[in-house]
Amino acid sequence: MAAGGDHGSPDSYRSPLASRYASPEMCFVFSDRYKFRTWRQLWLWLAEAEQTLGLPITDEQIQEMKSNLENIDFKMAAEEEKRLRHDVMAHVHTFGHCCPKAAGIIHLGATSCYVGDNTDLIILRNALDLLLPKLARVISRLADFAKERASLPTLGFTHFQPAQLTTVGKRCCLWIQDLCMDLQNLKRVRDDLRFRGVKGTTGTQASFLQLFEGDDHKVEQLDKMVTEKAGFKRAFIITGQTYTRKVDIEVLSVLASLGASVHKICTDIRLLANLKEMEEPFEKQQIGSSAMPYKRNPMRSERCCSLARHLMTLVMDPLQTASVQWFERTLDDSANRRICLAEAFLTADTILNTLQNISEGLVVYPKVIERRIRQELPFMATENIIMAMVKAGGSRQDCHEKIRVLSQQAASVVKQEGGDNDLIERIQVDAYFSPIHSQLDHLLDPSSFTGRASQQVQRFLEEEVYPLLKPYESVMKVKAELCL
């Protein structure tokens, strides 16, 4: 049975990233139509530049190519590739079939990587351009969430054990800070992308030097003109047959890092959902379990974690691919890159769409948070109580021993009897502590235990987050809708 299948058929496997999760716009960027249309555009740009620099290419040939950029006979191309065992030459023939007058000058002087690699770089750039505003929107939604809850005390956790208090907004800023680093890295790697350009079979530009009869300047002009037509500021000066596969490492490393950030955020949300302090959106008709109707599973956060793990592992592909590119190139890269580049971007696209949807509907339960604080705060307040007693004339050592005994009794009630923490009640009825009984409410005010959390939130948002989001103001209103 021949390899390949009808990918629109229910009898043929289709990647869930495309069929179930990723956005239509990201799927289109990695589609065959987008790819092969870009090949034709690159052939047109090459012909236009070659004509401008004096090669015998007519206006009629150029116009014929322009008129057929979208006229792609995919069936013919597939048949040609089956016959020739070469995808680029299959599309040269297919393009030439609908451009008979231009057929002889299509791909003039070029090698397969002229269309293959340059198209990949265009796709990487455009895919990054799709991700950047999506990530900015996630940051914006979380920034709104953090600002609104900047002063809401909550129990902090280290080692997932109760620690000092923080605020809900401050905790959210930990998430935002990681995503801001990801946004900066995505922008950097996007701006650092260079075009492969017009380089020939081993990167020496020998074929173009021959076409222009040894004119170095025209060869350099050709490279520059096509690079500018493709919208790049610069091209690699040095290439082998391909652009260095280190570029793929750079791009997928940034995406993998984004995956790590999203995994951490969504894990926190899942843990908070278990504590009943916070939940992701839950639709009115949504079913959490087929057997347990009360369940409210954090399905979206779980999906993000599941896909983020996949995204983090994909960076190993370009690392290994770059390491086995012998001399000017081997074909070890080809099949692998067809999979890992598309999957990385479709996965990143999915987790950003999902995280935006989550961040637009996060639900906080202040009463649950308050109750958990009441359970733990008495123990945390013991040092403040000791200091207040010393100020009232008591002995630190005597007070410490009193607190120690009462704390152990209260802990026994919590752990052995399943009761509430009654340390404060014990202190309130103990005559030894009568000098500070009137101060206990103040000493137990949760806001006095959150330090500068709310001020940190305000400063972080104003100095770091809002300036970073400013270039994306025009796209901030787009909502994230999930079908599944």
Rank of each mutant, 00 (worst) to 15 (best):
S23I: 07
E48A: 03
R85I: 04
K82A: 08
E302Y: 06
L42S: 07
L130M: 10
E376C: 04
T354M: 10
R137K: 07
A22I: 12
M76Q: 11
G288M: 04
C99V: 14
E277C: 08
L17S: 11
S67C: 06
E64F: 15
G109Y: 01
G8P: 12
M76S: 10
F282R: 02
M26C: 13
I62Y: 05
Y243W: 09
D32G: 11
R459I: 15
P281M: 15
I369E: 05
I339G: 07
S290M: 04
K224F: 03
L193Y: 15
H310T: 11
G104P: 08
L468K: 15
G4E: 13
A102G: 06
H86D: 01
F160Q: 00
K470H: 12
H159W: 00
K101M: 13
G214L: 13
V254K: 08
G169V: 02
L271G: 07
V226A: 03
A2G: 07
M76P: 11
I358G: 06
M278A: 04
S23V: 13
E228R: 11
G393H: 12
T94P: 04
L258W: 09
G231Q: 10
F379V: 04
R196M: 09
I139Q: 03
S334M: 03
V324D: 06
K367L: 03
Q320I: 14
Q325M: 08
M225N: 03
P366E: 12
Y21W: 15
R452Y: 10
W39G: 07
L132S: 13
A291Q: 02
T94L: 11
R374W: 07
L484A: 13
G96K: 05
Q416G: 11
R141F: 10
K391Y: 12
D87R: 00
F236M: 08
L275C: 07
L69T: 04
S438A: 15
A260N: 00
S257L: 14
P281W: 00
A103F: 12
L186W: 13
Q177Y: 05
S395R: 08
A381M: 07
T354V: 12
D11N: 15
G418A: 03
A47E: 02
T321Q: 05
V465F: 01
A235N: 08
F74S: 07
V368S: 06
I351A: 06
E50V: 08
S253N: 10
Q458R: 13
Q241E: 13
S334F: 01
A143K: 00
E370R: 12
A348P: 02
V478I: 07
L84F: 06
A103S: 13
A431N: 12
F379T: 05
C305M: 03
P293I: 08
F195H: 03
I57L: 04
Q428H: 12
G214T: 08
V364N: 11
D6P: 06
A2C: 13
A348K: 02
G200D: 00
Q456E: 01
S407H: 08
G361R: 14
M380H: 02
G169T: 06
H400I: 08
T350P: 11
L484Q: 15
D317P: 08
G109R: 01
I237D: 05
L121W: 02
A273L: 08
M387P: 03
L319N: 00
R40K: 05
C305T: 14
Y21F: 12
L53I: 10
I436P: 07
W39C: 15
D87V: 01
I424T: 12
F345D: 02
L193W: 10
I237L: 09
V413G: 06
W326V: 04
N68R: 04
D420S: 05
D333F: 04
M312E: 05
L179K: 02
L377A: 03
S448H: 12
L152N: 07
G200H: 02
G288W: 01
L444N: 03
G451S: 10
Y114G: 05
Q161T: 03
E383L: 01
K218W: 14
E79Q: 09
D192C: 00
L482F: 14
A136E: 15
F195L: 12
L469N: 12
Q428A: 13
L155G: 02
Q408D: 08
E463I: 06
Y365C: 12
K101T: 07
N297L: 01
C98M: 07
C180P: 03
E401D: 08
S359Y: 06
R171A: 03
S289Y: 03
L155F: 07
R20G: 05
M476H: 15
H263M: 05
L255V: 08
Y365H: 07
S9V: 10
L155S: 04
S454T: 14
K246D: 00
P153R: 02
Q51C: 05
S447F: 13
R234K: 07
H91V: 09
Q375L: 08
Q320K: 00
L355S: 02
